[in-house]
Amino acid sequence: MMQRRQRVDNKKTVQQQFGGQQTIHGYATSTVHAHGQSLQRLACFIQPQPTWYVLDVATGAGHTAHLFAPRVSQVIATDITPGMLAKAAELAARLGLTNVQTRLADAESLPFDDNTFDLLTCRLAFHHFPQSQQVLAEFARVLKSGGTLGFTDNIVVPDKKAAAYYNAYERLRDPSHHWVYPLPRLRKMMAAAGLTVITIDQLSKEFEFHKWADRQNVSPANREKLLLLMRNIPAALKLLFAPRWEDDTMYFNLWEAVIIAQK
């Protein structure tokens, strides 16, 4: 069990990493986050009802909360970073959404009663959670029986050495990155939390290296290291990253899983 002090330090790293105005703006306008394919897939797989209470955990700039809000009764959006939450509330107001409320909260200890939500969404955030199994236990606790989990996160290949290389690459860009898991591991973790996986979709998304690095204000020295890491990727990651160099920049892919599960 990770010590509480270390967990608090990890959360402070997330708050620092995502609390800057430039970063907040970057995530509010990022194509991957605001209009990503996984957002469309969630909308496609989940048919929300007008009576539903929805919780969007680690909402960031609120894109997932805003997607479902027009079709449900209430959405509560949580995040651990005050600046992100303020941005989510600002964007909700700009969109005319009057049923989105925000709470500063930690995914590992959600401040809600048991069996409360019809739908819980968590998109592209799970890799930040040090106590990931505890987070899934919390998802299961606050979902109603029969409630739906709409989950997306990046995934990695099952090979352990390759997974470690991948996660080191991500953490060099974002120190608040904790761990990206392979899909079979995610399935097991969800099952252990009492969540039954209903359907899984996988997608690949392309990034231009400097735009990706800009979103986390990566230093020039670390950009060099990241590019070097990408030139030397292990064979097990070549299919995933599929790096290509063009016009003095580098393009690469990340894989994302969309998982719909039920309590």
Binding site: I76, A93, Q101, A105, S109, L110, D113
Partner: peptide, 20 residues
């Protein structure tokens, strides 16, 4: 937007409701 009462009804102390 004020905090709505029905949404406060589902709010709990995170220390006392979650985990160990």
């Amino acid at each position: 937007m004020a905090v709505s009462m029905d949404l406060l009804e589902i709010l709990r102390c995170p220390y006392c409701v979650s985990g160990e």
